[in-house]
Amino acid sequence: MPETRAAVVTGADSGIGRATAVRLAELGMDVGITWHSDHRGAEGTAEEVRAQGRRAAVARMDLTDLPGAAGVVGDLADRLGRLDVLVNNAGTGTATPYLDMAYDQLRDVLDVDLAGPFLCGQEAARRMVRQGDGGRIVNVTSVHEHQPRVGAAPYCAAKGGLGLLTKVMALELAEHGITVNAVAPGEIATPMTGQEDDDVRAKDRPGVPLNRPGDAREVAAVIAFLAGPESSYVTGASWAVDGGMLQMGPMAGSHLTGDEWRIP
């Protein structure tokens, strides 16, 4: 293993991406950070990485502009000198009923949440193969990799697809010493859910066994494990970080008292 490892974390300007970038820096990695619309947030993440004594490189990435956008992974690897870890974290979603979904909405979500990680993973894996000493790829999916949600047809399709893509990547890249795993968060206090930096223990979530949302750092800790040496025999797995949410299917269904669930 090289003396200094380097990671690229997509969508690292806030939320899970930022928490992951900082956690990997704490573990001694230099970190490439991508952003789409929040340059200031990305620079804030870079400052936190540098505060850990590690190098940070920042670049804009628009995953609706494919296939070219995936080249940002290679550009960041060049700036950092190598690439050992890719975290495909950038994502987007919708809250639009299936019958009202426009093709452009569908295409954007599929590009960002599925085609983008596919191509970024290729870019990273090809470099890791050339380096010759293995690597780690972690795809951030969602509990909706495993279970559907009303109003999220393209998001669920993309995340479910990314879950199976993870397994295929794990099979094909194993001979090169590259492990590939998914992390499937539940409701996490991030900008995407309108809760960044909220005190998750002050939130009441009766439908979640742990009775609260998750903190982005709790997801980052699992990603960091999968990106590190101690997970060397783990590949092709999906790790739910959801407070037990996925265990509640029949339980939640049997306790609903109205039709509110039909509304996105």
Rank of each mutant, 00 (worst) to 15 (best):
residue 120 C to Y: 01
residue 130 R to Q: 15
residue 186 G to H: 04
residue 188 I to V: 14
residue 198 D to A: 15
residue 200 V to H: 07
residue 156 C to M: 05
residue 178 I to D: 14
residue 150 V to M: 13
residue 138 V to P: 09
residue 180 V to T: 08
residue 188 I to A: 02
residue 143 V to C: 04
residue 178 I to N: 12
residue 139 N to A: 05
residue 149 R to A: 15
residue 176 H to V: 07
residue 170 A to Y: 03
residue 120 C to K: 00
residue 143 V to R: 03
residue 170 A to E: 10
residue 155 Y to C: 07
residue 159 K to D: 00
residue 116 G to T: 03
residue 117 P to D: 13
residue 116 G to I: 01
residue 135 G to W: 02
residue 109 V to I: 15
residue 199 D to C: 05
residue 169 M to Y: 10
residue 140 V to C: 13
residue 122 Q to C: 07
residue 162 L to D: 01
residue 114 L to M: 11
residue 136 R to Y: 08
residue 147 Q to Y: 07
residue 111 D to L: 05
residue 182 A to T: 08
residue 153 A to S: 06
residue 108 D to H: 01
residue 199 D to T: 08
residue 196 E to G: 05
residue 134 G to T: 09
residue 174 A to M: 10
residue 119 L to F: 09
residue 136 R to C: 10
residue 178 I to Y: 09
residue 182 A to Y: 08
residue 182 A to Q: 09
residue 113 D to L: 14
residue 102 A to Y: 02
residue 130 R to K: 11
residue 120 C to P: 06
residue 136 R to A: 14
residue 126 R to P: 04
residue 170 A to P: 03
residue 200 V to C: 10
residue 129 V to L: 05
residue 197 D to W: 00
residue 139 N to V: 03
residue 145 E to T: 14
residue 192 M to I: 06
residue 163 G to A: 09
residue 128 M to C: 03
residue 153 A to E: 03
residue 171 L to Q: 12
residue 199 D to N: 11
residue 127 R to G: 14
residue 138 V to C: 13
residue 157 A to C: 10
residue 119 L to A: 11
residue 191 P to T: 04
residue 113 D to A: 11
residue 130 R to A: 15
residue 159 K to S: 01
residue 154 P to A: 06
residue 109 V to T: 10
residue 184 A to D: 13
residue 191 P to M: 07
residue 184 A to H: 04
residue 185 P to E: 04
residue 117 P to K: 05
residue 117 P to I: 07
residue 171 L to I: 11
residue 155 Y to I: 05
residue 155 Y to S: 02
residue 114 L to A: 12
residue 126 R to L: 14
residue 165 L to F: 05
residue 165 L to V: 09
